[in-house]
């Protein structure tokens, strides 16, 4: 009681282009503790998906929490999730709230 759950959304991004096409900033021990989407590149898989927005904060990728991960590690986890051949998509848990 008294604690508001921020709204989070599960977004599935199909691998429809050779790149994911997002830029992220943030990570543990920075002013932005969870990775935030700062750019979505036209023609990338994320753009084609149509459900990701600049400003959204990425909480999880394929069910892996990004909390406590430094920038490089968060970026590596997202890059690996995009590259893995086991799936033809990535699942992001995102929120509009910081």
């Amino acid at each position: 009681p008294g604690v508001l759950e921020p709204t989070s959304t599960l977004v599935r991004v199909a691998r429809t282009a050779s790149t994911l096409g997002i830029a992220i900033e943030g990570g543990a021990n920075t002013r932005q503790p969870l990775p935030r989407i700062v750019t979505i590149q036209k023609g990338g898989s994320a753009y084609n998906c149509g459900q990701l927005r600049v400003g959204q904060v990425i909480l999880e990728v394929n069910g892996i929490s990004l909390r406590g991960r430094e920038h490089q590690e968060a970026a590596r986890l997202i890059a690996e999730a995009f590259k893995t051949k086991e799936r033809d998509h990535i699942e992001f848990l995102v929120t509009e709230f910081n």
Binding site: E25, G27, N29, T30, R31, H71
Partner: peptide, 15 residues
């Protein structure tokens, strides 16, 4: 605590 104010900005990575 002023700790939050001293945290550095993050780099940006294109994925």
């Amino acid at each position: 605590r002023e700790k939050r104010l001293t945290l550095p900005p993050s780099e940006i990575t294109l994925l």
